[in-house]
């Protein structure tokens, strides 16, 4: 077991290091000198000596390989460089924007889980075939809807047609309702699909038949025998889902004009602020790797069958 834990942590660190390298190559090494591009423009009227001074201040006059090692050292110590656009440390920008995005992402994930569980359970329990088919078709529809368009449609219906949520100066709670729904619906689709598939698979197991034969109602069987077996495998896509949440936040925050990591990302791309984007890419890779690591390490605790298998292997 101990060897398994260490090898998984080692793999996670390897993926993180590679992700950092890929993002460095894409965003720092290949585009040339972002500092030069910004300050060389004639409108600024800087003398070559001044430009050289700025380059030295940003550390962009050293060879790329040295910059790479310096960047690794900086990232490990929590220094993500300077935002060329905003002129403040990237870590400061991230710290200022992270809380809003975390709140939105937490709400969105919670709602997505609720939608997915409701869809999966209702489609299993309903007695009407047409309702079951309709519920099972919903995730496919959710996946096909552009997130940004969904947000705009919600604003249109709830703010402009029904006038339920004010557009100008909504309260904090009101301002979060529509973004949360926008973020949650695309995330709920893969969750619901996996849940439905797992419930279908679990329903064919013999222990379900035994429980039914003993006179248990469908709802009882679903809750006591099927749910746990169907919900666990959903954990395995946690890493992908968190990444999708962050990507969804980019679009959602842009549509609703919210501050947060997503809005920051959108601005960084618009102003070619590579340092900010690299920090966000690395941050998302960290989230992905940690989520997968936690799931891999905790999974055996929830599923006794895996635990024994691993002990046999180790």
């Amino acid at each position: 077991m101990q060897r398994y834990v260490f090898s998984r942590i080692g793999q996670a660190l390897l993926v993180l290091w590679l992700a950092f390298t890929v993002s460095f190559v894409l965003l720092q090494a290949l585009p040339g000198d972002a500092v030069l591009i910004k300050f060389l423009s004639p409108e600024l009227g800087l003398s070559p000596a001044q430009i050289a001074e700025i380059q030295a201040a940003y550390g962009s006059d050293t060879p790329v390989i040295l910059q790479y090692f310096a960047a690794i050292a900086n990232f490990v110590t929590g220094n993500f460089g300077y935002s060329v656009h905003a002129g403040v440390p990237v870590s400061q920008l991230l710290a200022a924007n992270l809380p809003q995005t975390l709140r939105l992402a937490t709400l969105g994930l919670t709602l997505a889980l609720a939608i997915a569980v409701a869809l999966a359970f209702l489609s299993t329990l309903t007695r009407f075939a047409f309702l079951r088919n309709a519920l099972q078709a919903l995730p496919a529809l959710f996946i096909s809807v552009p997130t940004f368009w969904l947000g705009i449609m919600l604003i249109q219906v709830f703010s402009f047609r029904l006038r339920l949520i004010p557009v100008i100066n909504p309260s904090e709670l009101q301002g979060l309702i529509l973004p949360t729904i926008t973020l949650a619906i695309p995330i709920s689709a893969p969750l619901a699909q996996i849940l439905m598939r797992n419930i279908d698979a679990a329903l064919t197991q013999s222990y379900v038949e035994v429980a039914r034969a003993k006179g248990a109602s469908p709802a009882f069987v679903l809750w006591h025998h099927v749910a746990r077996n169907a919900v666990l495998p959903t954990l395995t896509i946690a890493g992908i889902l968190l990444g999708e949440l962050l990507a969804g936040a980019v679009v959602t925050e842009t549509v609703f004009g919210l501050n947060g990591i997503g809005g920051l990302t959108e601005q960084a791309v618009r102003s070619q602020d590579t340092a900010v984007l690299q920090a966000i890419v690395v941050l998302s890779a960290v989230v992905f790797v940690i989520a997968n690591l936690v799931v891999d390490l905790l999974y055996p605790l929830f599923d006794p069958r895996l635990r024994t298998r691993q002990e046999v292997l180790a």
């Binding site: 585009p31 990444g243 890779a285």
Partner: peptide, 19 residues
Amino acid sequence: ADVLLSIPALLLMLSIIIL
């Protein structure tokens, strides 16, 4: 491939578009 999959698709797209 593992590394590319660990970065959310939208962020990878944006990185390439910045480039």
